[in-house]
């Protein structure tokens, strides 16, 4: 390790002024972070150890780990956690589809821009608006899907949002649709960054398209895959809006509720802000652990061109 000796130099007035400005620029995001991130996080952690309702005294109702212990045997929490994890089946599906479509769009095909825009529209659309729209697409009697189903088979289609299994499938379909555009754009950028020489060299060596895909495309897309995986996992644990809009009471027998849905219900419908905070803290810890595992594990499979 190289050691650096601090050399004291006299700063000019201008340098001092510049330094003051620099501190000011640093201060604004720092203060913002302290005020809007650090403080609420600390507050949430403290609240999670209490029976705070928003109305009663926070400090007068401290219960230590009471909420956490209760959560361990909270059937509804675990049901919601299970559903949240099941929804994550959509992540690999979205990644595979995204990669395939990106590879398609990476060729010189007519209407490429129109197609890219079409795929990206859901990403920039309001989540609430498209959730309402899809609730109608999935509608049992009047929905587009069951309309097509009836046209093709002559029988009534499934109860997409009213059946315990189908509601999960419906939400996975929605989430894949909603996220696909973003994944495609990322993979497209990744594909365009792979130097053509690699493929040419492989061709000279006699590699077929599968070999090229497996040995060049896939490994060199791994940084994108890593990024998509991390952000999708984090997003996956935070799913809320679409569930709330499509199944406002959490689906039949609470089958579509996610952890954040449960958290919201506890904290803001039932006034258990302390308990809700404990759920949030647990969720944050889980996300932290999974993200950390991903970061530590990335050496094994994420390859870069350098």
């Amino acid at each position: 390790m190289a050691s650096h000796k601090r050399v004291k130099t006299k700063m000019s007035a201008m340098a001092k002024r510049e330094e003051r400005w620099a501190w000011l620029f640093i201060a604004s995001p720092f203060l913002g972070f302290m005020l809007f991130m650090a403080y609420p996080i600390v507050f949430a952690v403290i609240a999670s150890a209490s029976k705070w309702t928003g109305i009663n005294s926070l400090w007068g109702n401290m219960v230590g780990f009471g909420n956490y212990i209760k959560i361990l045997s909270d059937v509804k929490f675990w049901r919601a956690m299970g559903t949240t994890i099941i929804y994550m089946i959509g992540i690999p599906i979205g990644m595979i589809l995204g990669m395939l479509v990106a590879m398609g769009l990476n060729r010189k095909i007519p209407g490429k821009r129109v197609l890219t825009t079409m795929y990206y529209v859901p990403v920039v659309s309001s989540l609430v608006a498209v959730s309402i729209l899809w609730a109608w697409v999935f509608n049992y009697d009047y929905g587009l899907l069951n309309g097509i189903y009836k046209f093709l088979t002559g029988t009534h289609g499934p109860n997409w949002l009213g059946d315990e299994v189908m509601v999960k499938i419906s939400l996975i379909i929605f989430m894949v649709w909603k996220g696909l555009g973003g994944t495609i754009i990322l993979y497209l950028a990744g594909l365009q960054n792979i130097p053509r020489d690699y493929y040419e060299a492989a061709m000279i060596d006699g590699a077929g398209s599968i070999a090229k895909f497996m040995n060049i495309t896939l490994p060199l897309l791994s940084p994108v895959t890593f990024y998509v995986l991390i952000t999708s996992l984090i997003g996956g644990f935070q799913v809320f809006v679409e569930v709330q809009v499509m199944t406002p009471s959490g689906g039949p027998n609470y089958s579509s509720a996610t952890v954040v849905f449960y958290l919201f219900e506890k904290a803001f419908t039932n006034g258990q802000l302390g308990y809700g905070s404990a759920v949030a803290v647990i969720l944050a810890i889980i996300i932290f652990i999974i993200t950390a595992i991903n970061f530590w594990g990335q050496d094994k499979w994420v390859k870069t061109i350098d």
């Binding site: 991130m37 809006v241 919201f264 803001f268 996300i287």
Partner: peptide
């Protein structure tokens, strides 16, 4: 990332809901 998830749970979702 974990911390921002906690933030997300306690603030953003409220408005969305």
């Amino acid at each position: 990332v974990g911390a921002s998830a906690l933030m997300g749970c306690s603030t953003t979702t409220v408005e969305e809901a």
